[in-house]
């Protein structure tokens, strides 16, 4: 992926904004879908679903997020060279929104998973429970920490994460570390209590 362009994709400087507005004027038809959508979709679909799946832990939900993200992209004027970075950031953000809005449901899932189960289903239930716990903990993280964590584990460089989240590259490590530390504590807490 193009490192520099992904970083700048999420930084709408006044110049870029003006450029976009200018481009908008040259697109007299509101809502027209950009011509390179299919090409970008086929190239980056796997990556976008992957980013969302890290957050949601569900392939179906991740594919739904990807649909939403590519729809937004299709209506955007993001330069083609910056698409991959933009899509990754949008996927992480949208998936976290979904996760946050479904927090109550996750709590219910936790309750269900914690209820007694037949011995032969115990292992599966344990995996489900752990997955639900990770998602619940992820939903509770401050937004910047969660974004930094997901983007970093999705393969974005420190410079790209820094640009996407308005952090200095030096503080990305601190932010990712805090997120990992919080999630680790959550996992350990349950492991020791269970």
């Amino acid at each position: 992926m193009d490192l520099g362009s992904a970083a700048t994709a999420v930084l709408p400087t006044p110049e870029r904004r003006a450029e976009r507005d200018d481009r908008k004027e040259r697109q007299p038809v509101p809502g027209a879908v950009r011509d390179d959508l299919e090409e970008v979709f086929r190239r980056d679909y796997r990556r976008v679903v992957g980013v969302a799946a890290r957050v949601l832990g569900s392939r179906d939900a991740a594919e739904d997020v990807a649909q939403e993200v590519f729809l937004s992209f299709g209506r955007s004027t993001v330069p083609a060279g910056e698409a991959t970075g933009w899509l990754s950031v949008a996927a992480a953000h949208t998936a976290l929104n979904v996760l946050r809005s479904g927090r109550r449901r996750t709590s219910r899932e936790e309750a269900t998973a914690a209820s007694p189960v037949a011995p032969d289903a115990a292992e599966e239930a344990l995996a489900l429970e752990e997955r639900a716990r990770v998602r619940a903990a992820l939903a509770r993280l401050p937004r910047k920490q969660a974004m930094a964590l997901v983007l970093r584990h999705s393969g974005l460089s420190y410079a790209e994460v820094a640009a996407a989240l308005d952090l200095s590259p030096g503080s990305v490590g601190t932010t990712v570390r805090r997120a990992e530390s919080a999630l680790r504590e959550e996992l350990n807490r349950h492991a020791s209590s269970g």
Binding site: A53, R59, V150, H153, A179, E180, R184
Partner: peptide, 11 residues
């Protein structure tokens, strides 16, 4: 540990 917990397992 966290990387494994949020791994992309979409296949």
């Amino acid at each position: 540990l966290v990387g494994a917990a949020i791994a992309d397992s979409t296949g």
